[in-house]
Computed example of a mutant assay.
Amino acid sequence: MSDSVPRSLDQRLDVIARHPFRAKFHLRGRELATAELSGPSAMRWHAYDLIAKRLAPAEPYKDGKQTPYRGHPVFVAQHATATCCRTCLERWHEIPKGRELSRAERAYVVGVICRWIEREVECSSGTMNAGPNA
């Protein structure tokens, strides 16, 4: 785990991952390859863009149905981390519905998504942050 990631974020992700529905989501195939090839900065940019359009408004279009299950690593991560709709965001992350997400809330959501993707990529490589000489 990188020193810049708060332990509480990993702890929250561990709690969410114990929920049977959330536990089913993992990066595989094309989505895993996309995350690995694009890298963390591109994933963060994609997450910011998708959150701004699909989750940040006070009343997102088709809220509860706006996030596809597959097609992009961020979509998979949103379902795995309960950041897929405003109802899940309220239930799991205590961010209330009915108002636009603040800048800090957007950054938090993107951080959750990106940390989950980072953990998935680490697990898939089997290295868990091991260096080239490990």
Rank of each mutant, 00 (worst) to 15 (best):
I113W: 03
I51L: 06
R99G: 02
D49E: 11
L32I: 03
L101K: 05
I95A: 01
S41M: 12
R115D: 06
F75L: 03
C88S: 03
D10H: 14
Y61D: 12
W45H: 15
S41G: 08
S8A: 15
R30F: 11
G131F: 09
D49L: 12
A33N: 12
H72G: 02
R91A: 14
A17Y: 05
T83V: 05
C88F: 02
D49C: 09
R7G: 15
Y69G: 08
W116Y: 12
V121T: 02
K97P: 11
V15S: 14
V121N: 05
H26N: 10
L27F: 05
T67Y: 14
K97A: 12
L13M: 08
F25Y: 06
A104Q: 06
C85W: 06
S4Q: 15
I16T: 05
Y61G: 11
V15D: 08
A42N: 13
V121S: 01
V76C: 06
P6V: 00
E118C: 10
A82H: 00
G131I: 13
R70A: 05
P60D: 00
R12Q: 14
E100G: 09
C88V: 04
I113K: 03
E31I: 04
K97L: 11
I95F: 03
G71Y: 07
L55V: 01
L101P: 06
Y48K: 10
E122T: 04
M1W: 07
P57M: 05
K53N: 10
T87S: 12
E31K: 01
H79Q: 04
A33Q: 13
V5A: 01
H19L: 13
A42C: 12
E59V: 13
S124E: 10
V110K: 02
E120V: 01
P40H: 12
H19V: 11
P40R: 14
V109P: 00
Q78T: 04
G39M: 05
L101F: 06
K62H: 13
K97F: 08
E105I: 02
D3H: 11
A47N: 02
D49R: 13
E105G: 04
A77G: 07
F21S: 13
C88H: 01
K53W: 09
R44D: 09
Q11F: 08
R12N: 12
R119D: 00
C114S: 03
E59L: 09
M43R: 09
R99F: 09
A77V: 07
H46E: 12
L9D: 01
M43W: 10
N129S: 15
E120I: 01
L50M: 11
I51W: 03
T87E: 15
F25E: 00
R28K: 14
E90I: 03
A47F: 01
R22G: 06
M43C: 10
K97H: 13
V112M: 09
A42P: 09
R70Q: 10
G29H: 02
Q78L: 04
P6A: 03
R54H: 15
P68H: 15
C85M: 07
H93Y: 01
C85E: 06
L101E: 10
G71K: 05
F25G: 00
D49H: 15
W45V: 14
R70I: 05
A17K: 13
H19T: 13
W92M: 02
P73D: 05
H93E: 00
D10R: 14
A52C: 08
G131K: 10
L89V: 00
R54L: 15
Q11N: 06
G64Q: 07
V109I: 01
I113C: 04
K24V: 04
